[in-house]
Design a protein around this nucleic acid. Structure first.
Lengths: 190, 190
DNA sequence: CCTTACATTAACTGATCTGTAAATATATCC
DNA sequence: GGATATATTTACAGATCAGTTAATGTAAGG
């Protein structure tokens, strides 16, 4: 299997798992929808879990790239970038086929902390916090890590509510809280 | 089957679904762990989904009762009650067997809005908002509904992060944001 | 052209899935 | 005590689960 076909297999599997859930999506369906026979899939991924891990790696890369780029496109200063995250989230919530955060759902189905799927899903969130923390530091926050964790809270809360309520309102609600948090920044008081 | 046995069946099924997930928990396991044969279970619940709905009804009742009571026990004024929610959440996060919010996980596995499981899970969140809104109104908030939605955001974010990080820190982080939100209340400025 | 190595396939395994049918135990009423 | 209704059990259907085996197709090297 070429690298291209392998990449497309992972890409199509991502959509299936994202739309239907992990346990609810059988490998027979993956084979049927990707056009790659089950045996070929198992040549490249020893187990279903390994395919899921590859899917999560792709999702992590795609999502972080998309979110961080969108934040930069929408704003110049670190403060504005942090706020722009919620506008980017709103765009995502409005997309056809938005179904919440794939990593939250992965942890919901694979709850064991020793499970690689669980660990890798939380790793994605830590990478997000790292980025928020850099921006918070640039914005002159007294405690950049604490502010970054608060932003993660708002982001995850907004995603969960948006997915459950089938509405994008949570993006605005989270942004309004974020604005209050940033209003207390030393740099803003100057 | 007596009402007692039926209630205990639902109670034990709740633990199984909460610990293992919905799709990952088969009806054979439910029958084995509850000591009630599968046929008897299907006499009282036409499908697995109906059993899950009964489980979610119990969870909704138990969780709201517990949370609202704990908020009242910990505080006297509406403001303090809203803040005390995060202390109550921290207690929950520290419990053995804490595995996140059952309704978030239900929506993660049953994503179709037309699915009763999905709808009933979001209904639980709306009941929480209703309660927060009453407290927010009593606390003199200008826009009680908006404040209630912000508190829901913080609560859901905290639960998701606590479940994924296997840590209770998110409770404090959410509370620190909530304190800032309440500091802007008119009644507090008096 | 032939051989070797590899990629891919259909068909299958045994376990498990939700849900059911027929048989057995139990309780209630006369 | 015997008839009737209800509860419960065992055993099973048919589908689907993750994963494998043995056979087939295919392309490169000599």
């Amino acid at each position: 299997m070429s690298q291209n076909k392998r990449a497309e297999l992972i890409r199509k599997a991502l959509l299936l798992f994202y739309r239907n859930g992990f346990h609810a999506t059988g490998m027979d369906l993956v084979a049927k929808e990707t056009g790659v026979s089950k045996t070929s899939i198992y040549k490249h991924f020893r187990t279903k879990d390994e395919l899921i891990l590859a899917v999560l790696r792709l999702r992590d890369e795609n999502f972080r790239n998309w979110l961080f780029r969108r934040m930069e496109e929408r704003a110049d200063t670190p403060q504005e970038q942090l706020l722009a995250m919620f506008d980017a989230l709103e765009e995502w919530f409005l997309e056809d086929g938005f179904q919440g955060c794939m990593f939250i759902k992965a942890c919901a189905e694979y709850q064991n902390p020793d499970d690689a799927i669980n660990a890798q899903s939380y790793a994605h969130k830590r990478l997000l916090v790292d980025h928020f923390e850099k921006l918070a530091a640039q914005a002159g926050a007294e405690d950049p890590h604490a502010l970054a964790r608060q932003f993660l809270l708002l982001k995850e809360g907004a995603i969960v509510i948006a997915a459950m309520s089938h509405s994008q309102d949570a993006a605005h609600e989270a942004k309004s809280v974020a604005e209050i948090l940033l209003a207390n920044l030393p740099t803003c008081a100057q």
